[in-house]
Design a protein around this nucleic acid. Structure first.
Lengths: 223, 223
DNA sequence: GTGCGATTGAAAACCATGTTTCAATTGGAG
DNA sequence: CTCCAATTGAAACATGGTTTTCAATCGCAC
């Protein structure tokens, strides 16, 4: 080998920089200039280590997924805890990932980009990141509503919950002009609390099987 | 004047074509090639009529706003109707605009693009399209919850409602792989009904001022 | 009919981006 | 020390997209 940095070193810097840039701008709008600028390398290094932009992107996804599996606080909750608490934990984890600065956020943001502008990486992201989280959420909703996890209505609710979380991330340019100029920690906590209460009631209304169960649970929660 | 088409004629064709393409692909990904292809003109015509891509885009927004004001079925509901009905009308109108094929949809889709990838046109869209719809929605929610339209909690709920609608449009690439391969009319109606019930309960839970009011309203609705 | 200004088409220039080339550099093996 | 393969930097190349140029066309005023 040669170079002052070493193979793994520059490869790693490229991966990190690319993960950031792809997550910020999406696949298409991300440029070599910016990636190489942050990584402190030449465009040639991308070709050398990853062949081309697409393969760099796929490698980024791969790395993001690996990191996600290593330290995921979305899926690892206590399955014996009451479902309301698990739902709140889930929402908080997704919000913090999407909006906060923590490291493993990038993959989730990248997933958000894929929603709008799908690429060849969409399938693997869906299979290995979205579906597990989605099914986990379905499980929580099932516990909360009494329906089965694979009930179509359960899935509709899971989509709605996900949509709430993603929207507050996606629409930030507009939201910042309407109400929350920036998402600092107190605002984040407020949004999590709001979203939790909002979707919990939505789930009970749409998926709850008996009005009685719903009514009592809600009163206990609101008062 | 000269040319077989005439000034207003080609200008109009360009505007229509550009509105479509911008709404489908977003500002950046839209190309002259596609716009001119659909309009049946040369790139030079864009320069001649609108100076450059940005000004074409701004003109497109202007036209979309004008058309929106002319035939808007989002804002013109019956203010004396019960708030639940008005909420359902609002959600249906937004869904159909975002997902359906009707003509004035394009501006709303364009707005959705601006959320993800803001441009110089964002401000005018917010001021003249988003804010009116948003305030209208706040009014409905206020009627529904008993809060004031400018109450922060009312606004949070309005964001959530908007988020629900926008998500089902934005995340279509993922949703099509999870549950709804395509959005035909029955699916659309189902999503509208689901969203309405979901957010109505969310609003009552988050913004409703007394648990009693909430409980009775909900039972009446669910059973 | 002639000339003029408005409009358009074809092509070229320009620019940004992804990709490739190639020579230079480096660290280790023999 | 010398050679070798791995790695990198600088610059060239190709491509696709936007903007400009310029000549050709057309309708109208005179």
């Amino acid at each position: 080998m040669a170079g002052d940095a070493g193979f793994a070193e520059t490869r790693g810097r490229l991966l990190s920089a690319a993960l950031e840039v792809f997550a910020e701008r999406g696949y298409r709008a991300a440029t070599f200039k910016e990636i190489c600028g942050r990584a402190g390398t030449n465009p040639a290094a991308i070709n050398y280590h990853f062949r081309d932009k697409l393969h760099l992107y796929l490698a980024v996804i791969e790395q993001g997924l690996a990191e996600l599996q290593r330290r995921s606080d979305i899926l690892d909750d206590d399955p014996t805890a009451p479902p309301r608490q698990r739902l709140r934990h889930f929402i908080g984890a997704v919000f913090r990932r999407l909006i906060g600065q923590e490291s493993p956020s990038a993959l989730l943001r990248l997933m958000a980009c894929e929603m709008v502008e799908p690429t060849a990486g969409l399938d693997v992201i869906i299979q290995r990141a979205f579906l597990p989280a989605f099914e986990h959420l379905c499980g929580i909703i099932a516990d909360l509503s009494g329906r089965r996890p694979d009930d179509p209505i359960t899935k509709d609710c899971a989509l709605s919950v996900f949509g709430q979380c993603v929207f507050f991330h996606h629409a930030r340019p507009i939201i910042s002009k309407i109400k929350y100029p920036k998402y600092d920690l107190p605002v984040l906590e407020h949004l999590i609390e709001h979203t939790f209460r909002f979707v919990e009631a939505g789930i009970r209304a749409v998926a709850g099987q008996e009005a009685v169960r719903f009514g009592t649970a809600q009163i206990e929660c609101t008062s």
